[in-house]
């Protein structure tokens, strides 16, 4: 599977209701060792929402709030975004992701802390 098979796929809950599309795929670094990289990146869950721009701009992370105008608009657009734990995913096929849970049981994604330091 490729990441792009997930991104943009429609997400449907247990009752067949659409929750929007996969906007991002959250990874956690606790998988099998990958050479010099160390522990591999494993899928932890999906970020689902109706508007594409919101997560792409990065305003869903901690401490990113400026400029006010843009941050405000991005927040409003990402209001309905939800986090789906990978364990709730039943099936991925034909650009469609089916869930085992109901849409209203899902929570908003927790903002990630940004990676430290620009210069390395």
């Amino acid at each position: 599977m490729r990441l792009s098979d997930l991104l943009g796929a429609e997400v449907v809950d247990r009752d067949g209701r659409s929750l929007g599309r996969v906007r991002d795929v959250r990874l956690v670094q606790d998988g099998p060792i990958q050479g010099t990289f160390g522990a591999g990146l494993r899928i932890e869950g999906l970020v689902v929402g109706r508007v594409a721009v919101a997560s792409r701009l990065g305003y869903d992370r901690e401490g990113v709030e400026a400029p006010w105008l843009v941050a405000r608009i991005a927040r409003v657009l990402s209001r309905d975004s939800r986090h789906v734990p990978w364990s709730d995913v039943v099936r991925v096929a034909d650009r469609r992701v089916e869930l085992a849970c109901r849409g209203d049981e899902l929570l908003a994604p927790t903002p990630l802390r940004h990676l430290p330091g620009a210069e390395s």
């Binding site: 990065g58 992370r61 401490g63 990113v64 400026a66 400029p67 006010w68 105008l69 843009v70 940004h114 990676l115 330091g117 620009a118 210069e119």
Partner: peptide, 20 residues
């Protein structure tokens, strides 16, 4: 404005006001 990239060199308030 992204602290991940810019660290302490993110836009100042003035730059952001003008920038907006």
């Amino acid at each position: 404005n992204d602290p991940e990239f810019m660290g302490d060199q993110v836009n100042s308030r003035l730059t952001n006001a003008l920038g907006s």
